[in-house]
Design a protein around this nucleic acid. Sequence first.
DNA 1: AAGATGACCCCTG
DNA 2: TCAGGGGCCATCT
Length: 108
Amino acid sequence: MDDELHERIRTVITGVPVGTVATYGDIAALSGAPSPRLVGRVLSEDGHDLPWHRILRANGTPAPHLAHEQLERLRAEGVLADGQRVNLRKYRWQTTPGDVRDGPAALF
DNA sequence: AAGATGACCCCTG
DNA sequence: TCAGGGGCCATCT
């Protein structure tokens, strides 16, 4: 397997600041992963020592089986969830501070 | 070799 | 909001 990419994905995830969240797609793009699925797989087998709770799906909801645990951990960091969904617009990790205000959608 | 599976994403209706 | 269909990658049967 591509150990290099594996490490890069782990590194990017480790770099997500406390109190912020990122989507699988974000991690994939930043780490150069060909697909967000890779990110999910890495977390599944090698995410025990990573801040996995800061990784959410594109719509702001966490993975079904971990939802409870994940939301609780986020809450402890100051990330408040509206039921199952986290407000990405507010807590999403901004990779380029200053440039983008509200993510790609704001370009319109 | 072919299908199923998994912590996924996007578009369309 | 929810469902369906297509695409994505690596691993296991």
